[in-house]
């Protein structure tokens, strides 16, 4: 009986995460912000920029998937969000060709 109740609770949870769930995501985001600031003080040469951007990407995935609810949303919304990211990434990559090997 209690097993069943738990199961139901879990199912319910998956559809509408509660206060605690979002607060946990927030703690994760704050921790990652602390990490970026801490890492910025350490000189890691060429890895500094990619690492800072990697952490920013992880943070934005948390915001997109949970705060913006994309993970639980309709496939149409998922396609929109992913398409947006893919287009930006493609432009960055092609811009990279230009600025790194384009010459003067």
């Amino acid at each position: 009986m209690s097993n069943h109740a738990e199961l139901h609770e879990e199912e319910h949870h998956e559809e509408h995460p509660g206060y605690g769930f979002y607060t946990a995501i927030w703690i994760g985001l704050i921790a990652l912000t602390g990490l970026t600031v801490a890492i910025a003080g350490v000189d890691m040469g060429m890895y500094t920029v990619p690492l800072a951007l990697l952490i920013a990407c992880i943070k934005s995935m948390l915001v997109l998937n949970y705060f913006m609810h994309v993970k639980f949303d309709n496939i149409l919304v998922k396609v929109f969000a992913a398409g947006c990211g893919v287009i930006i990434a493609l432009v960055i990559i092609f811009l990279g060709f230009d600025v790194f090997i384009g010459g003067s």
């Binding site: 970026t36 910025a40 951007l53 952490i55 920013a56 943070k59 934005s60 915001v63 997109l64």
Partner: peptide, 8 residues
């Protein structure tokens, strides 16, 4: 989200 990238 935009600030997450602007800050670093």
């Amino acid at each position: 989200l935009i600030w997450i990238f602007l800050f670093p």
